[in-house]
Simulated assay, not measured.
Amino acid sequence: MTAGRLGVSETPVQDGLSLTYVGHSPVRQMMLHQSHVFIDRGAFLGRADSCLLMVCHQEIMDALRQHSLVGYTA
């Protein structure tokens, strides 16, 4: 099970771009923005509000369907 809730920006999908998982930019919660799922929760910081985020692709796809973003396929 994926840890964390998927946030969705005002522009979650960029036409012509495949869904991509990215890191190296710590975020407070997992976020979908312009077809990029930002998953870096800053585990290296060692703070109480940082963590290592494990992602299950199928759960991300299910969350996209819940947000009516069904243009992606698994």
Score class of each variant (00 low, 15 high):
residue 15 D to P: 15
residue 25 S to R: 11
residue 51 C to K: 08
residue 34 Q to R: 15
residue 2 T to I: 05
residue 12 P to K: 05
residue 6 L to Y: 06
residue 27 V to A: 14
residue 30 M to C: 11
residue 13 V to T: 12
residue 13 V to E: 03
residue 61 M to V: 08
residue 50 S to M: 07
residue 70 V to Q: 11
residue 73 T to C: 06
residue 26 P to M: 02
residue 17 L to R: 10
residue 70 V to G: 15
residue 45 L to T: 01
residue 28 R to D: 12
residue 73 T to D: 09
residue 73 T to L: 07
residue 33 H to W: 11
residue 58 Q to E: 14
residue 69 L to A: 07
residue 15 D to H: 07
residue 61 M to D: 14
residue 25 S to H: 08
residue 49 D to R: 09
residue 10 E to P: 00
residue 5 R to Q: 12
residue 20 T to R: 11
residue 53 L to Q: 14
residue 48 A to F: 03
residue 59 E to V: 04
residue 67 H to E: 13
residue 4 G to F: 02
residue 71 G to Y: 04
residue 63 A to W: 01
residue 17 L to I: 02
residue 6 L to P: 02
residue 22 V to M: 07
residue 20 T to I: 07
residue 63 A to P: 03
residue 27 V to R: 13
residue 58 Q to D: 15
residue 37 V to G: 08
residue 18 S to D: 14
residue 14 Q to S: 13
residue 63 A to G: 06
residue 9 S to N: 06
residue 26 P to G: 03
residue 8 V to T: 09
residue 3 A to C: 14
residue 51 C to V: 02
residue 13 V to D: 04
residue 63 A to H: 06
residue 6 L to D: 05
residue 8 V to S: 10
residue 14 Q to T: 04
residue 29 Q to L: 04
residue 52 L to W: 08
residue 45 L to D: 03
residue 35 S to D: 03
residue 27 V to T: 13
residue 61 M to L: 15
residue 1 M to Q: 09
residue 63 A to R: 15
residue 29 Q to S: 11
residue 39 I to G: 02
residue 22 V to W: 07
residue 26 P to S: 00
residue 32 L to F: 07
residue 12 P to A: 06
residue 41 R to H: 12
residue 65 R to H: 14
residue 16 G to E: 06
residue 44 F to P: 00
residue 26 P to I: 02
residue 26 P to L: 01
residue 51 C to G: 08
residue 25 S to G: 00
residue 45 L to Y: 09
residue 5 R to P: 00
residue 3 A to G: 12
residue 12 P to L: 03
residue 71 G to D: 08
residue 33 H to L: 09
residue 72 Y to I: 01
residue 46 G to K: 06
